[in-house]
Design a protein around this nucleic acid. Structure first.
Length: 405
RNA sequence: GUGGAAUUAGCUCAGUCGGUUAGAGCAUCAGGUUGUGGUUCUGAGGGUCGUGGGUUCGAUUCCCAUAUUCCACCCCA
């Protein structure tokens, strides 16, 4: 038997209903905030991700589905959504056009990782990217949108907040931190040794208890922000306070993609296992110029749809449409015609097999139909159709010419 | 990429200290209660016990490999 590739799942029936409900809910909210849908290719030039996400990141360094295509192009399946949207933004010269451009997208992403619950090789993200707004109010808007989406879906969360600083304060902090790590000598774990070279800020959230005890006195990024970053961070906090969005400052929160600066945030759930980050994002003011565009401030986020799936509280399903059934072989033709009529503006499902009334009612119930419409011997004699409303529990005999009118 | 656990019917799971026809609940299908569901009664079908090797008179059970899922690390959405 041929089965799907490891970490790649089919989404069907009830799961797809959830999936679809999520997309509909999130899209509606994004549109209300003035965002427009953007669709970008799943396959992009490998260089795009190397330059944006960063070669030091695990995503680019070891998790990309990368290959040479028949035209000798070095390409890969997108491991995340921002790079492609930024590429499109620049390619269509929206950076030169100026103004504000707000996009939302959703679709599959691919990372060659070891699968686990909430961590798939093909997974789906819903994301937002906003270009041209430097104000920290837009950062707050991002967080409010995620909060709105999660709330609409009945999902509880914790919000972690941090500021990563910008090109004025980050490099100096990084140096300070590295020299602090050096002062710890050989006491740190192997992972931290590696992180010191690739992404030193990562040592701060090392799970090793011994390391943590060493880092208690480590310099904190939040204490070394420049004036601009500091005041933006204060503004952000006050806006969130004003909108009653609870947050916790996590000075160890670091985004794994290299393009982030200033505001960084992560929404986590305590109910889905170790892969607990359900949404993450932040500001990336430098990325557009890194990709040869005109410098443009930008901020965005992405939600991991699979991680939300089991947390979504679905609205109570409502009965809708018709179930049609015949109680006698000769009644099937009028039943088919009646179904065709009903289907013009609602769901209509036909059971072809002649059955007893009780079995038809069960069938109607099973597909969650609102009406059970039956033609049997009595109806044939009276040239009518029997319709029962399964919600109101009332029933009536409708002459066929009236039903078709 | 590292370490660990699991894999038996469509689903959730029993069970076999290696021995005739491998079980339950739910689901499915069929039939009954003179044409009234979601909350009846009776019965039936459905499993090469993840896959491939090995040991054995005999393996679903023991051993090895492999696949997948899950847990922790790692990473991140």
């Amino acid at each position: 038997m041929i089965q799907s590739l490891r970490g790649m799942n089919d989404i069907l029936s009830e799961d797809y209903e959830r999936f679809e409900y999520f997309i509909a809910t999130a899209s509606t909210i994004a549109k209300r905030y003035g965002f427009h849908y953007i669709e970008t290719p799943l396959l992009e030039e490998t260089a795009l991700f190397k330059r944006s996400v960063g070669e030091s990141s695990d995503i680019v360094g070891k998790e990309m589905y990368q290959f040479i295509d028949k035209g000798e192009n070095d390409v890969c399946l997108r491991p995340e959504g921002t790079a492609g949207v930024v590429r499109a933004f620049i390619q269509h010269k929206l950076d030169k056009k100026g103004g504000i451009h707000r996009f939302y997208y959703h679709g599959p992403m691919f990372r060659y990782e070891r699968p686990q619950k909430g961590r798939l090789r093909e997974f789906h993200q819903f994301g937002i990217e906003s270009f041209g707004v430097a104000s920290v109010y837009e950062d707050a808007l991002m967080i409010m949108m995620v909060s709105d989406i999660l709330t609409a879906l009945g999902i509880g969360y914790r919000l972690k907040l941090n500021s990563l600083g910008d090109q004025h304060c980050m490099p100096a902090y990084r140096e300070k931190l590295v020299s602090f790590i050096d002062s710890c000598g050989d006491a740190i774990c192997g992972d931290c040794e590696r992180r010191k070279l690739t992404n030193p800020i990562r040592v701060l959230d090392c799970k090793n208890e011994h390391c943590q005890s060493l880092y208690l006195n480590a310099p904190k990024l939040i204490d070394h922000l420049c004036e601009g970053c500091q005041s933006d961070f204060e503004t952000l906090k006050s806006i969130l306070d004003q909108h009653a969005i609870a947050y916790e400052i996590d000075t160890n929160l670091v985004r794994g993609l290299d393009y982030y600066s200033k505001t960084a945030f992560e929404f986590v759930s305590d109910n889905i296992g170790s892969q607990s980050a359900i949404a993450g994002g932040g500001r990336y003011d430098r990325l557009i110029e890194f990709l040869d565009g005109k410098p443009t401030p930008a901020v965005g986020f992405a939600l991991g749809i699979e991680r939300l799936m089991e947390l979504i509280v679905m609205p109570e399903s409502v009965r809708e449409g018709y179930y049609f059934g015949a109680m006698d072989e000769t009644a099937i033709k009028p039943i088919l015609l009646a179904a065709e009529k009903a289907r013009r503006n609602q769901k209509a499902v036909v059971e072809y097999k002649p059955r007893k009334l009780q079995d038809h009612l069960k069938g109607a119930d099973r597909i969650n139909a609102r009406y059970c419409a039956i033609i049997g011997e009595n109806e044939l004699n009276q040239n009518s159709i029997w319709v029962k409303d399964l919600v109101e529990k009332n029933e009536k005999l409708i002459p066929l010419n009236e039903f078709f009118a």
